[in-house]
Design a binder for these strands. Structure first.
Length: 628
DNA sequence: TCTCGACATCCGTGAACCCG
DNA sequence: CGGGTTCACGGATGTCGAGA
């Protein structure tokens, strides 16, 4: 139901959905200014009985530019701006007399600021991703992807505006969450997981900060330090991985295996050979100095095309197994509240267990470089047993060894030639890009994934392709206008002003099965995206003729009716009546002539204008391209 | 006395600013 | 660009006073 005075809603959720629809349709962001929960209202008026589904007895909404006057508590260390400017928009909703429903009792839809889609989409409320998506992004961020590429792909897929600081904040938030309540995590494990004698993920911080229960934990199960501390999956390392292709409802049924990668360099190529071992043992190798993040890989088309990676040449004839860090699985398990964790992951002190299993060699990937440095010695893996925490002493020992190892790595790094560093950077860059690409390739393939809907909208044309059954038959002569059009290169000229350029977007949407079209034009300055002209209105067509009328409202204080004719994919209309506010600045617009012509996927608009000082003269010319 | 509007204030969250 | 951190925002409730 639309938001208007008198509209009733059975539940708060219904109201919320209607509010969201109103926001999207009008490009305004509303916030709750005041509420009175039904529990609180029942206390005040004990004779009244409320339906719990309405949640509130009173809700007062305002525009994000309105709202309460904030009393700043700033100490002056930072300059903060507020967007509040006493916008008068107000929407008041109350419970009906019987307390069973909510109804809109008051509404004032006036705003004292400019309204634009760009502003609307830029607001944090619209930029925000849902919790699950944020978690997925956070996981991806732990693999050090190319953040700009990630941002761009996210924008493309979600259709939302996403800033680099949003990416940063998602990461910060995840880190904060991980650092929160380690004791709770331990408590959770001791209650539910240890009974199964299973393996669980614990952050190093968790263990350090929860020394009181550490011994108890270790006595019951192995503690697996997450890969975040031992870097991400790296070339030259070995890692425990989990086959996500066999995901079942029960994590215990998932196939667990170990993967090793050997890393070799010939005169003109690097090779990464991946070997897969059956489950049995988990151990870690000494990190290789060539620490390059490896992305999740799955299925076909896992690698970016050669064109996408200009820096070097990638060849791959086979696909990789999909794998992911155990840390991710452990965390997911905890969050899902599934107490049966992966019981097949245990730790071994002896490599013999592992060696008894014949490795399966997986296809290799070759990364070719335009130039090579054969002096760089190939690096092969020399397994070194990973000693997991067995107590505080071993913690210290482990830390000490890691420090030593880190120092050794530093020394090795210093010896590397500049050429080698460049190569490493190239490899890193490649994998950073691949990480992002593969992540989203996976999203495309997974049925029902949360990005899929918006992705389909984006890739399949966004606005629905309209069949004739979706608009009134009378609109057929104008159907070539339907959809969204955009241009960055409009040219403006007029004898009384300097020439200028502008960007503009236009949208033509049939109104249900009614014989009319709603349309919008909004333009901006290309240099700074500052809003310029806005026009909105409706197009009608005289039945059984080609006579059409534009009913237009301009933000410059002008309303007008333009009439004319449509012939094929071209229409021309001219002002027949015009109204303007009493305080509009001169010169006074007397008439406007508009021509719209579609050629292929392009739409050209030419506007001419007559004022009280200038005869009818061409004013604007722009060519739009269809965006959906 | 009851109901309701309006204002004050609290507090957790997270957006975004500063700085290395 | 990223880590650390400030403080604006959003949601909720308490309280006061006017009017029925």
């Amino acid at each position: 139901m639309a938001i208007e005075v008198g509209a009733e809603f059975n539940t708060y959720d219904d109201l919320t959905n209607a509010i969201k629809a109103y926001e999207a349709a009008n490009f305004v962001n509303l916030i709750i200014r005041d509420t009175r929960r039904v529990e609180s209202a029942a206390k005040r008026n004990q004779r009244k009985c409320y339906n719990a589904a309405i949640k509130y007895s009173d809700i007062s909404y305002c525009c994000t530019y309105g709202g309460k006057k904030y009393v700043s508590h700033s100490t002056g260390k930072r300059i903060h701006k507020t967007i509040k400017q006493s916008c008068p928009f107000s929407l008041k909703v109350r419970a009906t007399v019987d307390g069973q429903r909510l109804f809109v009792r008051e509404m004032s839809s006036l705003h004292n600021h400019e309204i634009s889609e760009a502003e609307f989409r830029l607001h944090p409320k619209q930029r925000k991703l849902d919790i699950d998506s944020q978690e997925e992004i956070a996981n991806l961020l732990s693999m050090e992807p190319d953040k700009k590429l990630l941002r761009d792909r996210l924008m493309q897929i979600t259709g939302k505006v996403i800033l680099m600081k949003d990416i940063h904040n998602i990461k910060t938030r995840l880190v904060n969450q991980k650092q929160k309540s380690p004791a709770d995590k331990i408590s959770f494990i001791s209650k539910d997981t240890l009974a199964n004698n299973s393996t669980i993920e614990l952050g190093e911080a968790d263990i350090q900060q929860s020394s009181g229960v550490q011994h108890q934990v270790h006595s019951l199960c192995d503690v697996h330090l997450p890969l975040q501390n031992s870097s991400h999956l790296t070339i030259g390392d070995q890692h425990d991985v989990i086959d996500q292709q066999n995901q079942n409802d029960s994590p215990a049924e998932r196939l667990c295996y170990i993967e090793t990668q050997s890393y070799q360099q010939s005169s003109d190529s690097y090779s990464v050979n991946i070997q897969q071992y059956p489950t049995g043992s988990v151990y870690e190798l000494t990190p290789n100095p060539y620490t390059v993040s490896i992305p999740i890989m799955q299925g076909n088309n896992i690698l970016p095309s050669i064109e996408e990676i200009n820096a070097h040449d990638i060849t791959s004839t086979n696909t990789f197994q999909h794998w992911t860090a155990v840390e991710e699985i452990g965390r997911t398990t905890l969050h899902a509240g599934n107490y049966q964790t992966i019981s097949t992951l245990t730790f071994s002190e002896h490599q013999n267990d592992l060696l008894s299993n014949e490795p399966q060699t997986l296809p290799s990937i070759t990364v070719k470089f335009p130039s090579s440095d054969s002096s760089s010695s190939p690096s092969t893996n020399q397994p070194a047993y990973h000693e997991y925490a067995q107590g505080p002493q071993n913690q210290k020992l482990k830390k000490h060894r890691r420090k030593e190892q880190s120092n050794n790595n530093e020394k090795k790094k210093k010896k590397k030639s500049a050429v080698q560093t460049d190569k490493d950077n190239l490899v890193k860059k490649y994998f950073q890009q691949a990480t992002v690409n593969l992540f989203f390739n996976e999203r495309l393939k997974t049925p029902g994934n949360r990005f899929q809907k918006s992705l389909r909208q984006e890739t399949q044309g966004g606005a629905p392709k309209m069949s004739e059954s979706q608009y009134h038959e009378m609109l057929k002569p104008l159907s070539w206008l339907f959809g969204k059009w955009q241009s960055e290169a409009g040219k403006g000229e007029y004898p009384t002003i300097s020439d200028f350029t502008y960007g503009e977007e236009a949208e033509f949407t049939p109104i249900g099965m009614k014989p009319m079209i709603e349309y919008k034009f909004y333009s901006w300055k290309p240099e700074n995206k500052m809003q310029l002209h806005r026009e909105t209105g409706f197009i009608r067509i005289k039945p059984e003729t080609n006579h059409i009328a534009f009913m237009a409202a301009h933000n410059l204080g002008v309303v007008e009716i333009q009439e004319g004719e449509v012939h094929g994919q071209e229409l021309t209309v001219q002002t027949t009546s015009l109204g303007r506010t009493s305080f509009n600045k001169p010169p006074e617009v007397k008439s406007v002539r508009r021509t719209l012509k579609r050629t292929g996927n392009e739409l050209e608009q030419v506007m001419s204008m007559e004022t009280n000082k200038t005869a009818m003269t061409q004013h604007l010319k722009i060519t739009f391209k269809k965006v959906n």
